[in-house]
Design a protein around this nucleic acid. Sequence first.
DNA 1: CCAGGACTGGGCAGTCTGTACAGCCGGCAG
DNA 2: CTGCCGGCTGTACAGACTGCCCAGTCCTGG
Lengths: 172, 172
Amino acid sequence: MPVPASPHIGAASRIDALDARLIELLAAEPRIGVLECSRRLQVARGTVQARLDRLMARGVIGGFGPEVEPAALGYPVTAFATLEISQGQGVDVRAHLASVPEVLELHTITGQGDMLCRIVARSNADLQRVIDRVVGFDGIVRAATAIALENPVPYRVLPLVAQAAGGEPPTA
Amino acid sequence: MPVPASPHIGAASRIDALDARLIELLAAEPRIGVLECSRRLQVARGTVQARLDRLMARGVIGGFGPEVEPAALGYPVTAFATLEISQGQGVDVRAHLASVPEVLELHTITGQGDMLCRIVARSNADLQRVIDRVVGFDGIVRAATAIALENPVPYRVLPLVAQAAGGEPPTA
DNA sequence: CCAGGACTGGGCAGTCTGTACAGCCGGCAG
DNA sequence: CTGCCGGCTGTACAGACTGCCCAGTCCTGG
């Protein structure tokens, strides 16, 4: 698996085993502090502190924001909508979608369809309302919606971290 | 496995304005502690502590894990693959996909296609490798992949929090 | 009208954080 | 070979925060 030189952003960012263990530890128990980490990882506190600072500075770790669960907020229905945009309307459509709270994420994509967005709703019935609001905008030619039924693999990054560190998946 | 311990998500969960302000504050500045929150929100420390405990107990806030950026780990390419599964192979396919580090998320969906997964790769060329690995499994009949070009709206939940709290979106 | 729940304001002991410093070690350059 | 440099280790100290407890007040529902 020859990885061609990646010309982009700090793609060079390579994390080592300690970085990976630190990330895994923090992911497993976010509430513990630097001191506790240093004890569990068997390294000096200053080291953990320095590693953490570096990881954040490099952007590997973006932050420690609270993970809010839409379902617990009353939005248990998730759906993915593929949108087709009429030429030149891209900018306006983005702004429109960004203004809809139920649109949690938006990507422009290749393939048939120009954008893919993740939306949530209070119920299947409510989803209709959300979709109407989403597509009720000039510039959106067509929309195909797929409701998410189950989520066998919730968003995760740890396996990737383990791989990036050169090791096998964590304790899996 | 799938879906971590999900407290009985009583969809009834309603959060009030203070909860919303707290979540927004924590999202904006994750590093501050309970005491600092209480100062900024102009309430007693105990109140903030109680609110936080309740939000976490109800599952509204899942945790404060580190937000790892795949791009910074050397995986700048994101793609969405729609998979078609042959009858009765669901379970095996899930297990297979779960074993691929580059598969960050997997949903079963309605519509044409049975599953939708988010995958990342080191480069477009590498994406081919990942896709091969993903679809190289009996039970996957067909796969359609769309590469994510841009991400006009990165995953967000704050607008939803604001709305759930009964207010208008924060910023405006 | 009373009880239960929620918020306030204070206090205490224990622990962690931010920061600094000196010593040690392995790698790189001269 | 030698010197320099970056990274890790221990240790130390002052300041700040957390977890926990309590009494008092206010508001709402039964």
